[in-house]
Amino acid sequence: MLHRLSLLLVAILLTAPAVAGDVALRLATTTSTANTGLMDYLLPVFTRKTGLEVHLIAVGTGKALRLGQEGDVDIVLVHARAAEDKFVADGHGVDRADVMYNDFIIVGPDADTAGVNQSKTVAEVLQRIHQNELPFISRGDDSGTHKRELALWESAARTPGSSWYREVGQGMGKTLQIANEVDGYTMTDRGTWLAYQSKLDIRLLFEDDPPLFNPYGIIAVNPARHPDIDYDGASKLIRWMTSPEAQKMIGEFRIRGQQLFIPSARDSG
């Protein structure tokens, strides 16, 4: 009986599709590009053009850069300008290029007792929340979004940290859900917001301020540091992502009828 069972298992395993080869290019990117479906929309076109398979690993910006630093991936696509510049300056990455940007928005309870929706700037938004000590949910996970939020607090000249400020250490979707449950405010990328909007009672309160714009950069891992990474493949991906074709596709990408990313590569048409 055991024999028969193990035979069955072996048969299933043998007939299962062959393992994808380890020749694939490894791209570490943030959950915001992966979860919106943007990369699933772009990468098949790249694969068709170049024959290069891309393995997409979706993590936070901090971890994506770390994976690049260790040579565990060939290329990273992230959004944390300061950290990106440091990554390149420290010699971990080369050939950084702008790809696109999306924006962050501030969401919160319908009642909006802080009057966030009347603010002129994002700095004012944060000052109002701080002053009224209303619940603010922070990602608290060292992601690009989290880093941006901290930078905004700094430029608003406020230090968050009392009991109204909650660091949850979760992804954006979870953070939105938590904000929804506690009638709190949070800062989110527009893509995740669009995906979750219909399931939440909190609403969009503030948008369209330049400090909230969120540029994405693509960086090849430095082949001088890690000789056996696929630098050639990474270069091809960078060239394609900044090409007019990919840039046009990015501009046309829609979620629930809304544009999410604005192409920004310098050599785009």
């Binding site: 694939a24 959950t31 979860n35 690993i57 979706a58």
Partner: peptide
Amino acid sequence: GGNIAHYTRNIPTAIALETSKGAF
């Protein structure tokens, strides 16, 4: 595994992904 589509995405990691996308 890294939750790579068509390669290392299994049932539990896919559930985690779908949940984070709000695709309940």
